[in-house]
């Protein structure tokens, strides 16, 4: 039973009248993973999540959650999923506790069980102080926690959160992230976001989506390694230009270089090392040997931000 992946998406396509939101994507998510679905607005993240949570049908392709088809065993799948849609819609006129209880009952929990679970998730999401307040009067951060508590209340195997930190202030974002990280032990989590550091911090795997396709899928570390091959070393050094160029050409690990004069005797060089090798120590030695003054020596490490921007850049800029 535990061998079946939590989510299994094969060739999923979703066409709306007039445009295609998701174009034949495939991915799997194993049990206990926290996976981030990353991409700019309109990349097809929300559509994918809506299909996973049985709200929309797929145009073609198969989607399975815990081995169950989302179209044929829709209700059974919904029992196993805790879904928080984009913008976290709630009933503003209800009180927090009342709402959570209503949701627990709706999800088929027994009377006593729903009371227990509401107590647990109220505590877990830090809602104890506001449990008697009306949802419409709560701050956005608290409302987001109510949405999270609702997604958790029936102890689902899979939690799907569509942009859980959108519109929160930094403190609230941190709190929500902590909460999500805490879920990892018992649940599989799929989060969508267009904010990169968020995915970087919370997820152990990322799927980068753009225009309905998955462009990259890997751990944040691996994605960074992937980018390291394109990293650059920036050197600012006081040396005669010709000598300097000759010097770079002699180092086999330097694939490309670009030298430009800055101010005074200083030259600014941008080196592209082969396979992302770190040449800083060698450059330092070289400079001291030749008694050149070294003013700057940095290796530009690409953050995931660069990967994201590069991968999701529109075609014409590439």
């Amino acid at each position: 039973m535990n061998d079946t992946p939590m989510i299994e998406v094969v060739n999923l396509t979703k066409r709306y009248a007039g445009h295609t939101a998701v174009r034949g994507i495939s991915f799997t998510v194993g049990r206990g993973e926290i996976v981030g679905l990353l991409g700019p607005n309109g990349a097809g993240k929300s559509t994918t999540m809506r299909i996973l949570s049985c709200f929309l049908p797929a145009t073609s392709g198969t989607v399975r959650v815990a081995g169950l088809d989302v179209f044929r065993d829709s209700r059974e799948v919904r029992r196993r999923i805790g879904f928080m849609p984009e913008n976290n819609p709630l009933y503003p006129e209800m009180r927090v506790r009342e709402y959570l209880k209503f949701r627990a009952r709706l999800k088929g929990l027994g009377w006593r069980r729903s009371r227990q679970r509401v107590d647990v998730v109220t505590e877990q999401c830090g809602l104890t102080d506001v449990s008697k307040r009306i949802i419409g009067q709560l701050s956005k951060g608290y409302r987001q926690r109510v949405g999270l508590a609702d997604a958790l209340v029936h102890e689902p195997d899979l939690i799907i959160l569509d942009e859980p930190t959108a519109g929160l202030d930094p403190h609230q974002i941190r709190a929500v992230r902590q909460l999500i990280k805490g879920l990892a032990q018992q649940h599989t989590v799929l989060i969508s976001t267009h904010i990169l550091p968020e995915a970087e911090m919370t997820c152990n795997r990322m799927l980068i989506m753009f225009e309905g396709r998955i462009l990259a899928a890997d751990t944040p570390d691996n994605l960074q390694k992937l980018m390291a091959s394109n990293s650059q070393i920036i050197v600012e050094i006081a040396a005669p230009r010709l000598e300097l160029e000759e010097c770079w050409a002699q180092i086999p690990e330097v694939e490309q270089f670009n030298v430009s004069a800055v101010d005074g005797d200083y030259q600014r060089c941008a080196l592209t090392p082969r396979n992302g090798e770190d040449l800083r120590a060698r450059i330092h030695l070289l400079a001291t040997q030749r008694r050149w003054v070294l003013r700057e020596l940095t290796r530009s490490r690409h953050s995931l931000e660069d990967i994201y921007v590069q991968v999701t850049k529109p075609e014409e800029d590439n």
């Binding site: 809506r50 949570s53 049985c54 709200f55 209700r75 059974e76 919904r78 029992r79 999923i81 879904f83 928080m84 849609p85 984009e86 913008n87 819609p89 709630l90 009933y91 949701r103 709706l106 999800k107 088929g108 609702d150």
Partner: peptide, 14 residues
């Protein structure tokens, strides 16, 4: 309009 239709229909109700 409020989007709660989505939260409602993604619970196991027919």
């Amino acid at each position: 309009a409020a989007g709660t239709f989505e939260t409602l229909m993604t619970t196991p109700v027919s």
